[in-house]
Structures are given as C-alpha cells and as structure tokens.
Amino acid sequence: MFETATFDDPVVLEPAIRKRWASLETSSAAAVLRAVCPEEWRDITSVLAAFSLNPSLWLKKGGNRGDIAKQIDDSFAALGWRETRVDLITEGVLVSKKGLEMERLPAVRQEGYLVDNFKGRVALDVEWNAKDGNLDRDLSAYRAWHEAGVISAAVLITQDRVRLKTLAERLWADHLEKLSGTKRHTKLPIDLGTSTTTNLEKAALRVRRGVMGTCPLPIVAATEATWNGRPYSP
C-alpha cells in the first residue's frame, strides 16, 4: 500500500475544500479520480464543498448516524449516484496447451453488499457512526471490485472522532451555560466516546495494514473545520 497526498495539489483539490476535511489516501487516489473519473470527482468535490456540519443535526439524540449520513447521501443522489449492490461472478475455463477451450466450469457468484453511492466506476460509502466492522466489509469489497476491474477507485467519507469530540463538548457546554448560566458537566446527548464506531482513526489503521492492495482510496473525514460555526440548538 502506498500512502500518498495528491489531494494537497491545488490542481487536484481546491485548497478551500482541503482545509475543511482531514484526508488520507492510497495510490494517488485523488489524482486518479480527477484524471480517470472526472465527472464523479466533480460530484465528490462539490458535495464536500457544500457540506457543513450542523450541530443541531449532529448532536441530536437518536439521529446522529442517520441524519448526517442521509444529508450527504441525498446530495450524491441529487447528482445521479445510487445505492447499489455489486456482485462478482467468477467463471473457470479449462484451456488446452494449444489454447483450445476444453471446458467451462460452473460460474460462482459472490454476493456483495449495498454500497451507499455508486456512479460510473466509483463506489462511495458514508460511514459516519456505524460499527467499525463495516470498515472491514467496505475495504475488502473495494479491493475485490478493483482487482476484478469493476471500479477505478473507491471513496470513504467519515468523521475525525477525536477532534469532533472536543468540538462537541465545547458546543454542549456553551448550550448548558446559555440555559442555566453555568457550564454543568453533563453527558453529551450522543455517545462520542466509543472507539468501536467508524472514524478516521479506525479506517487509517486498516488502510496502513495494506488491506487495500492497489485500489486507490481517498478517505475524507469531517473535523471542527467542517462545522458551520453555529451553536447547538435542540
């Protein structure tokens, strides 16, 4: 696995977008997407540019994963991306020494999973606050699809849990102070302390083990810079 940083090139990704998202990539993924899948890359960068983290949705009890992920997924759906299941079918062919086909073996179908967004030759998942086991499923599927020639690259959108937890605690304290005049130490309305949910750190650990093979993969994660600057309001 080659960890690269082509998203730092202002020709590949606008600096204004780069500043608002934490990024990690393999195999020059951003540059590959821009060159090989220009329409899909324009979609991705336009969604990243337009999205801002709204505390009223983000910190809403019971709606954390659904509201944020749905907001991003809806933006891609408006651009023609679709939730799609990708199955792989493998067929064995016996060939003689002279190159003559002798026999076709029964085809084997490997059932995939519903990727959140698919367009052209790009698969994209929004893993906001799901169980981190989803990352194992996603990354292994991306690699298999790339090796089979089905996709040119995959994209993962997630959160920088550590940095966002600090922001959430500050916004929550400000909210409590506004209500009662004191920054009482009460629990956040959502759980941001668990380390078993999908986030940049968990994705990076897997990617750096080389699980992606040669599949280009940019991971972008929301940080405090993605926040819309507004206070929390229930």
Rank of each mutant, 00 (worst) to 15 (best):
F2Y: 03
E3P: 02
T4Y: 10
T4G: 13
T4N: 09
T6M: 03
F7E: 03
D8R: 04
P10Y: 01
V12P: 00
L13R: 09
L13Y: 01
E14W: 13
P15G: 04
P15M: 07
I17K: 03
R18V: 05
K19T: 13
R20K: 15
R20E: 04
S23F: 13
L24Y: 08
E25G: 05
T26L: 00
S27F: 04
S28E: 12
A31C: 09
A31G: 12
L33F: 12
L33S: 09
R34F: 01
C37D: 15
P38M: 00
E39K: 08
I44H: 08
I44Q: 02
T45W: 10
L48A: 14
F51E: 05
F51Y: 15
S52F: 06
P55Q: 01
S56F: 03
L57F: 04
L57I: 01
L59T: 06
K60S: 14
N64D: 04
D67Y: 00
I68D: 07
A69L: 02
K70C: 11
D73N: 02
D74Y: 10
S75R: 13
S75M: 14
A78C: 09
L79D: 03
W81Q: 12
T84K: 02
T84M: 00
R85V: 15
D87F: 11
D87L: 14
E91K: 11
G92Q: 09
G92L: 07
L94H: 11
V95N: 02
S96K: 09
K98V: 02
K98G: 13
G99D: 09
L100S: 06
E103T: 00
E103I: 04
R104F: 07
L105W: 05
A107P: 08
R109V: 15
G112N: 01
G112I: 00
G112Y: 00
L114P: 08
V115W: 08
D116V: 11
D116E: 12
N117H: 09
K119F: 01
G120Y: 05
V122S: 03
V122H: 04
D125Y: 05
D125T: 01
V126S: 10
D132G: 04
G133C: 03
N134E: 09
L135G: 13
R137Y: 07
R137E: 07
A141C: 12
Y142S: 08
I151N: 09
I151D: 08
L156Y: 12
L156V: 15
I157P: 06
T158W: 10
Q159S: 14
R161E: 03
R163N: 15
L164G: 06
K165G: 12
A168P: 00
R170I: 13
L171G: 12
L171F: 10
A173H: 02
D174W: 02
L176N: 11
K178Q: 13
S180F: 10
G181C: 05
G181F: 07
K183N: 12
T186F: 07
K187P: 07
P189N: 04
G193H: 05
G193K: 05
T194R: 13
T194V: 10
T197F: 10
T197S: 13
L200N: 01
E201W: 02
K202D: 05
A204R: 12
L205E: 12
L205D: 14
R208D: 03
G210N: 10
C215H: 11
C215Q: 14
L217C: 13
P218K: 12
I219R: 03
V220L: 14
V220F: 11
A222P: 10
E224T: 01
A225V: 01
A225I: 00
T226R: 05
T226I: 07
G229F: 03
R230A: 06
